[in-house]
Write a protein that binds this DNA or RNA. Sequence first.
DNA 1: GCTTATTAATTAACACGTTAACAATATGGC
DNA 2: GCCATATTGTTAACGTGTTAATTAATAAGC
Lengths: 156, 156
Amino acid sequence: MSRAKTPTELGPDALLPHNTRRSLPIALLRAREAVMGHFRPMLARHEITEQQWRVIRILAESGKVDASEMADKAFILAPSLTRIIRSLEERGLITKHKDADDGRRVLLEIAPAGMRVIADVGPESRAIYDQLEARYGHERVEVLLDMLDELATLGD
Amino acid sequence: MSRAKTPTELGPDALLPHNTRRSLPIALLRAREAVMGHFRPMLARHEITEQQWRVIRILAESGKVDASEMADKAFILAPSLTRIIRSLEERGLITKHKDADDGRRVLLEIAPAGMRVIADVGPESRAIYDQLEARYGHERVEVLLDMLDELATLGD
DNA sequence: GCTTATTAATTAACACGTTAACAATATGGC
DNA sequence: GCCATATTGTTAACGTGTTAATTAATAAGC
């Protein structure tokens, strides 16, 4: 058996995890950025960020929800959500008040101005998504969503 | 549970793009976060971020590259890359100098300390990735990578 | 050769992601 | 009721994402 090689004697390829071009983290990042690239200009025209859009959209779907539930549904970490809520409230798109039953909880609700954003952005967003889905293939989108969900829940 | 009372007379479902739980942007985000959740603690132990790891890994793979090429390969925007390069150079993991042929370009090269990071992190990273791939299924990872790549290049 | 346009990189400004620490409120055991 | 503990949300600090503006250097047009 030959003597052990020190790290500096090894070619770097032997140490690398695998080809950078075929790695899940980067592939997921690239796919996500490509998808969001279709939505971002439209959202920017409405002066709203992707995360702000997720929040008001969930409020329109689900009515009153507290911050924890929102963080879970919108997949936004609590500190980010705190800032987003502050911004949306200052802009009058949502309202916020303490839960009477549990003083720790903050209940969120969409405001009329927020509903107008839903009415403005919703159809445009749907149109972009539908076009994307049509180009990729409806069936394949379903398959991809299933595969992504399975990847996301591997460790449960 | 959500029996949504709608804030206005207009049902929001008519305006919403589609079900939030089955949307590509969020599914991609969740999948990516789940995957990175497996790597992040290890990277944190080595006091390195995901993006910094991508940069030094590409330098180990490709030798000298300029900033534009790095931005392309690591999928990092130029302003972020400027900050990452500054940080990595201050920590002595990479070196940086102007291109003699084109004074605008900045050439990057991995430093010995950076190679030690490669030697330390690389095997651990590979082990995590291999385990992940084994649990998800090698074949399915390949299929997923192909589908993600196609999604990322839809508009080309 | 000189002006103009283009390109590479940086800076600025703002929003979000991430971890850790913290304050306020609820809960459970005694 | 009182205390230790757990939970909810916020703040802090730092790194990254994003767009726009800026600087430095090269390339193109004439």
